[in-house]
Computed example of a mutant assay.
Amino acid sequence: MDKNTINYYEENAGILAEHYELANVINVQNLLLKTFDINSKLLEIGCGSGRDALFMIENNYNVIAIDGSKNMIEEAKKIHPELRERLFHRILPNGLEFDNKFDGIYSISTLMHLSKDNLKKTLSKIYTLLNQNGKLLMSISLFRDDIDKEGIDNKGRFFLLLSFEEWIKICEEVGFRIVETKINKDGLNRIGIEWLTLVVEK
């Protein structure tokens, strides 16, 4: 993942964690419950404040979670100390090395920070980490009016903006079958940002 992007999250972990805890994500969380069977072994990629990991654990899922920012991991442990043994610092695409496989993997607002090449590498690793018929749910920005032509916003973060069709194509090239697609508004009520949630299956 781009160093400037990670640095932004490292330097602003405290305030960002507060924002994430307040975001309206009920639609995505309901889709998480719908997508994965209860008691499934899940991996969250880009856990931020730990909000969604805790939500899933409270709903009887077995979750471990990773984030590319060490400081964000520490904030998540402070906000949700019950997650302390379940949170790990890993940077994509090379941080997806696990000895075991998962029934499901989900990633909210993270994978769009990867370059196209690193996205393909990451999705391929996710595919191998899933059990047969395992599912991936990912939410990525489909449209943003706050980035330049290089995909950089005023905070220095990189965003990969692909069309709906390009996201579908990359997933299918890796070997995934498309299960569900949803386009939704921003959970922090930011005008000019639109999200795509994809559910795909191995």
Rank of each mutant, 00 (worst) to 15 (best):
residue 1 M to A: 08
residue 1 M to S: 07
residue 5 T to G: 07
residue 6 I to E: 01
residue 6 I to R: 08
residue 7 N to T: 08
residue 8 Y to R: 05
residue 10 E to M: 02
residue 11 E to P: 08
residue 16 L to G: 04
residue 18 E to H: 05
residue 26 I to K: 12
residue 26 I to F: 11
residue 28 V to Q: 10
residue 28 V to N: 04
residue 29 Q to T: 09
residue 30 N to S: 14
residue 32 L to Q: 05
residue 32 L to E: 10
residue 38 I to C: 08
residue 38 I to L: 06
residue 41 K to P: 00
residue 41 K to W: 00
residue 42 L to D: 05
residue 42 L to N: 07
residue 43 L to F: 00
residue 43 L to M: 09
residue 44 E to M: 10
residue 45 I to P: 10
residue 45 I to E: 07
residue 46 G to N: 11
residue 50 G to Q: 01
residue 53 A to S: 15
residue 53 A to T: 14
residue 53 A to R: 06
residue 54 L to P: 03
residue 56 M to E: 10
residue 58 E to C: 00
residue 60 N to R: 09
residue 62 N to V: 02
residue 65 A to S: 14
residue 66 I to S: 07
residue 67 D to M: 03
residue 67 D to T: 09
residue 68 G to A: 13
residue 70 K to W: 04
residue 74 E to Y: 07
residue 79 I to P: 08
residue 79 I to D: 08
residue 83 L to Y: 08
residue 84 R to H: 02
residue 84 R to V: 13
residue 84 R to L: 00
residue 86 R to T: 03
residue 87 L to F: 09
residue 91 I to K: 14
residue 92 L to F: 04
residue 96 L to T: 02
residue 99 D to P: 03
residue 99 D to W: 11
residue 101 K to H: 13
residue 110 T to M: 02
residue 111 L to V: 02
residue 113 H to E: 08
residue 115 S to R: 11
residue 115 S to P: 04
residue 115 S to D: 06
residue 118 N to P: 04
residue 120 K to A: 12
residue 123 L to V: 06
residue 124 S to F: 11
residue 133 N to T: 09
residue 135 K to L: 06
residue 136 L to P: 05
residue 137 L to I: 05
residue 140 I to G: 08
residue 141 S to R: 15
residue 141 S to L: 08
residue 145 D to T: 13
residue 145 D to S: 14
residue 145 D to M: 11
residue 146 D to P: 05
residue 148 D to V: 00
residue 150 E to P: 06
residue 151 G to P: 01
residue 152 I to Y: 07
residue 155 K to W: 09
residue 161 L to Y: 02
residue 162 L to V: 14
residue 165 E to T: 05
residue 166 E to L: 06
residue 166 E to T: 08
residue 167 W to M: 02
residue 171 C to R: 04
residue 171 C to N: 15
residue 175 G to T: 13
residue 176 F to L: 02
residue 178 I to H: 06
residue 180 E to D: 14
residue 182 K to R: 15
residue 185 K to W: 13
residue 188 L to K: 14
residue 191 I to L: 15
residue 192 G to F: 12
residue 193 I to T: 14
residue 197 T to Q: 02
residue 199 V to C: 01
residue 199 V to K: 09
residue 201 E to H: 05
